[in-house]
Design a protein around this nucleic acid. Structure first.
Lengths: 251, 251
DNA sequence: CGAGCAGTTGAACAACCTCAAAAACGGTGG
DNA sequence: CCACCGTTTTTGAGGTTGTTCAACTGCTCG
């Protein structure tokens, strides 16, 4: 849900004495909490459950699920390690969170979390930035759902995965698709058949190359061309405090 | 963009009676700023402009616009009086804001706004709540775009307008549609023709009744039935810092 | 080996889109 | 007040993309 704070991953080793020299990060709030394991397919919480906790994903992938009316399902996002899920001001969750793979999380009571945020002024802009990142992602997704063709949606999705979880070496990305076709379809506003057909088509055209059971490999810029939003920096890494200029012509 | 703070208007008296003298609201931050007028059709700011200011809409309607790739346009939201627009942590706006009608706004420098927020601890949860509300709205919109039929989208849209701007008297709402069909189409991920046809169809069925130039009248619950998300409370007002225990089943 | 499930493929169909033209509106200037 | 023009909206006919329904493949796990 919330964009990972990549910049904090390589935090200098520093032992947690009480709020003293520790550079406070959102992750550090959860640091002391025990790790819980969620089996693949089971839910961390359901839509409309009382929103008592906030979770940090340590490992694995969650899907964020909403059901409307007559059982139609939509996945509004996937949650990756480093992300938080369950943040809200309502007293009930607006969505469910289910494990796509076996997932490890840390739990924090919402009230305690709020207190923590209020106590540490350094934390607030970070939380705020995450909300803004998530908002930006939601707008991207709206653009995808409102405008893009099935093929463009799939390419956008693969690029998203590459950015969030993929192994990238010199403009070639290798991604794993742990979620089912149904999950992908519900995320992209398509049917499983359309997802399947377009994956086949992309493979046939050599735009993506299957690697192993659920893996694919592709050239980032070639797929970016097919993703629709050829806007300058939309496909590059976020310009939060980095400026990455990797952008050539063609191979 | 940000949902109006309805919840604070009718706050029950038993809750937090902290600041007696000045109840600080987000609106009060802008109170002292001069009012600027934007002509219909012109922009308050453009996508990718340096994000120097935050605006409060006092009167009128703005549309929030994004352009992807080859000129496809999407409207991610409309901004009504009481809402804020332009909030972000990036240094450039992720979207443009254009006046649908003549619009009056108050402007506030982003840096000054941030400072204000940091100074007033009462303001922070309110800003936070707005972000969360907006996030919830974005998720609703994703569900709409991913799942709903053209007719359902239009009904949802009319209900949204009724909630935000409409005159409601005993289950009958009267709304004004100041935006063009093109705006509606770009908001709902449809074409103007589809919008037009479905409006005609709804009118023919007597589900909505034209009132004046751009106005329509309808029974809220009848339209809610057609809006797709027949979820219990989706169309009701939000239960912000109230704990409503409406939930039987069994614990 | 067979049951069960996820994924693929095919053919017919529907919803929505595209293109085109007509109609309604709103402003402007006689 | 009316005639004119540009714009927005409506209406129509035909085309496309993605859906639906159905059969088939292949994998995993008893």
């Amino acid at each position: 849900m919330f964009a990972a704070e990549r910049e904090y991953q390589f935090r200098p080793s520093n032992v947690t004495s009480i709020a003293a020299a520790t550079p406070p990060t959102l992750a550090s709030v959860f640091k002391s909490q025990p790790i819980e394991t969620i089996q693949a397919g089971s839910a961390l919480f359901w839509e409309r459950d009382p929103a008592k906790h906030i979770f940090e994903v340590v490992e694995g992938v969650l899907r964020v699920v909403r059901i409307i009316g007559d059982g139609r399902r939509i996945i509004t996002g996937f949650v990756f390690p480093g992300d938080l899920v369950g943040i809200s001001m309502k007293d009930r969750y607006l969505y469910g969170a289910e494990a796509v793979t076996v997932t490890k999380v840390r739990r924090f009571a919402r009230s305690a979390f709020q207190e923590k945020i209020n106590q540490c002024p350094e934390l607030r802009p970070k939380l705020f930035a995450r909300l803004c990142d998530e908002m930006a992602a939601a707008q991207d997704q709206m653009a995808l759902l409102a405008c893009k063709t099935a093929e463009e949606r799939l390419c956008s999705f693969l690029l998203l995965l590459a950015r969030r979880t993929g192994a990238i070496s010199k403009s070639t990305a290798t991604v794993d698709l742990p979620m089912t076709r149904q999950d992908i379809a519900d995320y992209l506003g398509l049917t499983i058949e359309t997802v399947s057909r377009n994956m086949t088509k992309l493979t046939a055209r050599g735009m993506i190359v299957p690697k192993g059971r659920h893996g694919y490999q592709f050239k980032i810029d070639r797929l970016a061309l097919l993703a629709g939003d050829d806007d300058a920096d939309n496909n590059s890494y976020d310009d939060h405090d980095m400026v990455v200029g990797q952008r050539f012509g063609r191979p």
